[in-house]
């Protein structure tokens, strides 16, 4: 599939939207939580898992998706939501617990749910795969060429739900794409201590489906592989598994002391920051000018600030809200 200039600019803007949103959230999250860290205080209470550094996975995959395709993300899901086209203001408001949020402020950052864009996520590890199979089965039964994408981490690939879902998707030839984000750390557990195989992509062989590993957190390589996997699913040829080596710039959660991580790891990862690398490739091939790229970054920054302002200014839900839209 040809990579158009529009797609390249969209990819650049979206990666910056994710990065800037996450960096702003890292700042805002600390408001009201210092000097003694109190997870329940401040404008964004609760845990916070940020995805800066992992932009290529979300952007490279979602570049191929339509509004009617389903995406199920992880506990660290802001990048997927943004790349899938979830409204940034509603997402920010949800994270702030405001009534204007995607779930009217009831879900918070780990439970973003957007019917319009067919996006959801969950705090349960490995919980993205079975719903993706469900969505894919529905598409197949309805005779649609839509696809369902499950994102999950490399640690989740050791959960039963991973294996059960791959098996089910394979035997029913479901239009599903399974994307494993290998950021090397399952909370604090390195992959080598938790996973019997080096590449989860090889586990695809156990279910008779294609498995590919994309190294070096390269958005263009992800784009190519995901394009083939999505096209394959749309053609009715069944599921695929792609594992992407990606980088987690922040801790597992905000406030994570990261004592398990080599001291210079993040510094080294940031030296390989995928966004400037992408910009360099785009400029090198003359696909866009530096001014055009700067304009995209500025647009991303504006969108992020507008979303955060919207979230801050939005009202909290009334107490009665707790009784609405729930089974009682």
């Amino acid at each position: 599939m040809a990579l158009t200039k529009d797609t390249v600019l969209w990819m650049y803007r979206t990666m910056w939207t994710i990065r800037l949103f996450e960096e702003r959230m890292a700042e805002i999250y600390l408001e009201g939580k210092t000097p003694a860290f109190d997870i329940g205080s401040g404008p964004v209470p609760g845990e916070m898992h940020l995805s800066a550094g992992q932009e290529p996975v979300a952007v490279g995959v979602c570049a191929h998706l339509r509004k009617d395709d389903a995406v199920i993300g992880t506990h660290r899901a802001h990048h997927f939501a943004i790349a899938k086209g979830v409204d940034l203001k509603k997402m920010a408001a949800e994270i702030f617990g405001k009534v204007t949020g995607l779930g009217r402020g009831k879900g918070g950052h780990m439970h973003l749910f957007d019917v319009e864009n067919k996006f959801s996520c969950s705090g349960i590890i490995g919980a993205s795969l079975p719903p993706a199979c469900g969505a894919a089965l529905a598409y197949k039964k309805l005779g649609k060429d839509s696809v369902a994408v499950a994102f999950f981490g490399e640690g989740a690939a050791n959960q039963g739900s991973f294996h059960e879902s791959l098996n089910l998707a394979a035997i029913w030839r479901l239009p599903a794409v399974f994307i494993c984000e290998d950021n090397a750390w399952a909370i604090s557990v390195p992959k080598s201590k938790s996973t019997a195989v080096a590449d989860n992509s090889v586990r695809a062989a156990g279910y008779g489906i294609p498995g590919v590993r994309i190294p070096e957190n390269d958005v263009l390589a992800v784009y190519e592989a995901a394009g083939e996997a999505v096209a394959r699913a749309r053609r009715g040829e069944g599921p695929s598994l792609i594992e992407v080596e990606t980088y987690r710039f922040f801790g597992h959660f905000q406030g994570d002391p990261e004592v398990y991580r080599p001291k210079d790891e993040v510094k080294k990862l940031r030296e390989k920051d995928p966004i400037p690398r992408f910009a360099q490739q785009v400029l090198g091939r003359g696909l866009a000018t530096a001014e055009e790229l700067d304009a995209e970054k500025e647009a991303a920054a504006r969108a992020v600030e507008e979303a955060i302002a919207f979230a801050r200014e939005s009202p909290y839900p009334d107490p009665q809200e707790a009784l609405l839209h729930v089974f009682v």
Binding site: A196, V197, A198, D199, S201, V202, A204, A205, P210, G211, V212, R213, I214, P215, A221, E224, A225, E228, A229, R232, S240, I242
Partner: peptide
């Protein structure tokens, strides 16, 4: 080389996965 036998040719062709084990 731990990276050989795992690239996109498993998707675009019928390449076999070559496991590191």
């Amino acid at each position: 080389n731990p990276a050989s036998g795992k690239d996109i040719r498993r998707l675009v062709a019928y390449g076999s996965v070559f496991d590191n084990l």
